[in-house]
Design a protein around this nucleic acid. Structure first.
Lengths: 344, 344
DNA sequence: TAATTTTACGCAATCGTTCCCGACTAAAAC
DNA sequence: GTTTTAGTCGGGAACGATTGCGTAAAATTA
C-alpha cells in the first residue's frame, strides 16, 4: 500500500497481457474468458494487489468520503450524532471525515474551504454559534456540493434539514417548571441568530405567556459561544442571580449551557432544586447520576445522525438532480428528575 | 467543485498558454515571468479555480489524510484524544478519518481493510478489547503504513507508542483505597490480553502485596467487551457483591467500567463510599458533580492525541525510513473526591 | 466455401496535475 | 560576429484505473 504499491500494470506485465484485460478481468467483465479471469485473479492474489482508490476517484470524480462539521466532538450530543452517521456511512462504503469548528465562524470557514478542496462528496453540518452569514456554505452548495444541515440549520438553501421539535421541547420544559411551582424562569441560550435559539426561545416564551405571565427579556441570557468558554456562562449566571428579582429556575437551551449552569450553581452553593430549579437540553450520559439528578430534554442524537447521512447519500447517489427536500423534525424526550422537583 | 470543476486546462485554454506554464505559475516557479504569473493568478481567481487534490494524491502517492480507529467516539477519553489529534492535523493540512471498532475485532479488521484501501498516509489506533491477534496491523505496517498506537498498544511492532503510566496509576489508586481504610478491594477490568489491563492489574496487585495482603483472583473481574454491553458489567458486579467476602471497594480500570460500576451500585442502593468505595479511570466531564462525586484517575487524553499525531506526522514526513521509535509514557492525575472517603 | 457473427483482447484516450526535456528569444560574453 | 547563458515557455510522459473502439481469430451460418 505504500512502498510496493502493486498496480494493474504489474499484473499485466507479469502475465504478458494488456492492462485493459486485467482491469476487465478484475471487474468480471463479460468480454473476458473464464480462463483469463482465473489467471488474472490468481496473479492479483499472489502479488497482493489492491486497487488504488485515488486513481478511481480521479476518473469517477467522486471520493466516497463525506465530511461532518460540528463545533466539538467531545460533546455527547455531537458524538452521538457522529456515531449515527458513521454507523450507516460505514456500511455504504463511505469514509467520514470530521472537522470541528470550536464554535468559531472563522474556523468553520477555513474548515470548509479545506474540506471542499479535498473533494468530498457531501457535507453534514451543524453551524457554529458565530455563524450568521451563510455565504461560505451557499458557495459550495451552488457549486453542486450536497449538504444536509442538522441541529443548527439554515433555511437559506433548498436542502435537507434534520432537527428536533425545538419549539415544543422548550415549551414542554418550561411548562414543566411552571407546573412545579417555579415563578421566575430564566433562560440560558445560545447566540440569538441560531435556528435552535430562535425556536427554543419561542417555545419558552409561549409557555410563559400561556401561563398568564409576561415575558421578561432580562431573564433571557444569550451566550454567543454556546458556553465553550466557561466564563461566558458564569457571567450570564452571575447577572441572573443578581437580578433584583432573582429567578427561581433556569432552563438551559443547549447541552453545554445546562451543565455550565449546574456547575455554577454548585460552586455558588445555591441548592437545586430548592433555591433554583434546573432543566435543560442535554445528551450527557450521566445526568441521571448527577447531584441532584438532572431533569433534561434529550434529543434523539443517534437517530438524527442516521437520518442526516441517509438523506445525504440519497442525494449523492441520485442519478438526477434532487428537487424535493425534506425537513425532518424528530421528537425529543422530556426526562423529569430531581433538579426540578421543588417540593421534594 | 462538483459540476463545473475548473481545471488548469481551462485556465490554459482561456489564456492561450500551456498547462505546464499554468501549473508552474500557480506554484510560483522561478521559470515563469512575473507578468505571466500575474495573469494566470488573475484568471484562476476569475474562474474560481481550485486545485484537485485527488489528482495530486495520484501523482504524489499520498492523500494527506490519516485514520484514527477507536472503539467508540462517544466516550470522553477517546473524543478528547481525537480532539488533540485533530487540533494538530488540521494545522498541518491533514484530514482525519475516524472509524469505530465498537470493541469488535471483526469490525476492527474490516475497518482497517477499508481504510487501507482508501490510501491513508498513516494510522493512529487503540485496539479493540477483542483484539489479541495483530496480524491485520502487522500486514499494513510491513507494507509501509506508519502506525502509532495509543492507550491499548501492541509491542509486537517496532513503532511509536503513546500511553500513560498504567502500572503506577493503578498502584496509586489502590494505595489510596487502602489508606482510606478499605480492606477488600475488587477490580473491574478489561480483557486480560490488553496492554492496559496487564499493566493496571500489575499495579493493583503490587499495591495489595505492598500492604501485606494476598491478592485474591476472585476479586478481579474481566469484562471482555470493556463494558460496552451493560449486562457484562452488571454480571461482574453481581458476582462481586455475592462473594462470601463481599468487597468494600471497587476500582474500575477503564472509563466505561468505572461509570458502569457506579450505575450498578446506585441501582442496587449500595451506598458509596460507606458500603463500597469507588475509584477508577475516567475522563468524563462530570465526575465531579456525580452523586457522590467520583474519585478518578484522569488521563491526559488531549495531550495523548497531540503526541500521537506529532509522532505519526514525523514518520510520514520523514525523508528516510524512521528507525528510532519512542515509547511515550505520560502521567495521570489522581483526583480524590467523595466516592473514596469512607470516614466522611 | 464464403460471408457473417461472436468471442476475446489490445490500443489509446481520459481524469487533473506535475515535471523532465527540450526549444526559442534576446541579452551578454567572447 | 559567433557563442554562451539566462529567462520563458511548450510538448508530452507519467500517476492508476476505466472504457469506447477497433480487430484478429474462432465459431457460426448461409
Amino acid at each position: 500500500m505504500k512502498f510496493e504499491a502493486v498496480t494493474i500494470k504489474d499484473i499485466a506485465r507479469e502475465l504478458g497481457i494488456s492492462t485493459s484485460t486485467v482491469s476487465r478481468a478484475l471487474r468480471d467483465s463479460y468480454e473476458i474468458s473464464a480462463e483469463t479471469k482465473r489467471i488474472v485473479l490468481e496473479c492479483a492474489e499472489k502479488l497482493h494487489y489492491t486497487p488504488n482508490p485515488i486513481a478511481l476517484s480521479l476518473k469517477e470524480k467522486r471520493s466516497r468520503s463525506i465530511a461532518v462539521v460540528v463545533c466539538e466532538i467531545a460533546n455527547s450530543f455531537f458524538s452521538q450524532v457522529i456515531n449515527g452517521i458513521e454507523s450507516i456511512a460505514y456500511n455504504k462504503g463511505y469514509n467520514v471525515i470530521i472537522s470541528q469548528s470550536h464554535e468559531s465562524f472563522e474556523r468553520e470557514v477555513t474548515d470548509l474551504q479545506f474540506l471542499a478542496s479535498r473533494s468530498i462528496d457531501g457535507l453534514i453540518i451543524s453551524v457554529s454559534s458565530e455563524t450568521e452569514n451563510m455565504e461560505h456554505l451557499k458557495k459550495l452548495f451552488y457549486k453542486g456540493l450536497p449538504i444536509v444541515f442538522f441541529d443548527r440549520v439554515s433555511e437559506e438553501m433548498d436542502t435537507h434539514l434534520v432537527m428536533v421539535d425545538n419549539f415544543n421541547s422548550a415549551y414542554k420544559a418550561t411548562v414543566h417548571l411552571i407546573e412545579n411551582g417555579y415563578k421566575t424562569i430564566a433562560c440560558l441560550t445560545n447566540s440569538a441568530h441560531l435556528s435552535i435559539t430562535k425556536e427554543r426561545i419561542a417555545g419558552y416564551k409561549k409557555a410563559i405567556e400561556d401561563s398568564g405571565e409576561l415575558v421578561n427579556e432580562d431573564l433571557i441570557k444569550y451566550c454567543n459561544h454556546g458556553g465553550v468558554h466557561a466564563d461566558e456562562t458564569e457571567k450570564a449566571m452571575n447577572e441572573l442571580i443578581n437580578l433584583e428579582k432573582r429567578p427561581d429556575a433556569i432552563i438551559g437551551l443547549s447541552d453545554k449551557l445546562t451543565t455550565g449552569a449546574l456547575r455554577f450553581l454548585q460552586k455558588q452553593g445555591i441548592s437545586i432544586p430548592k433555591e433554583m430549579g434546573l432543566i435543560g437540553f442535554s445528551n450527557g450520559e450521566f445526568t441521571e447520576f448527577l447531584n441532584p439528578s438532572l431533569s433534561i430534554i434529550r434529543q434523539p442524537a443517534f437517530k438524527m445522525g442516521q437520518t442526516a447521512i441517509e438523506l445525504l447519500l440519497a442525494v449523492i447517489e441520485s442519478k438526477r438532480p434532487v428537487q424535493e427536500f425534506t425537513r425532518c423534525v424528530l421528537e425529543t424526550e422530556l426526562i423529569v428528575r430531581d433538579s426540578t422537583s421543588r417540593n421534594k
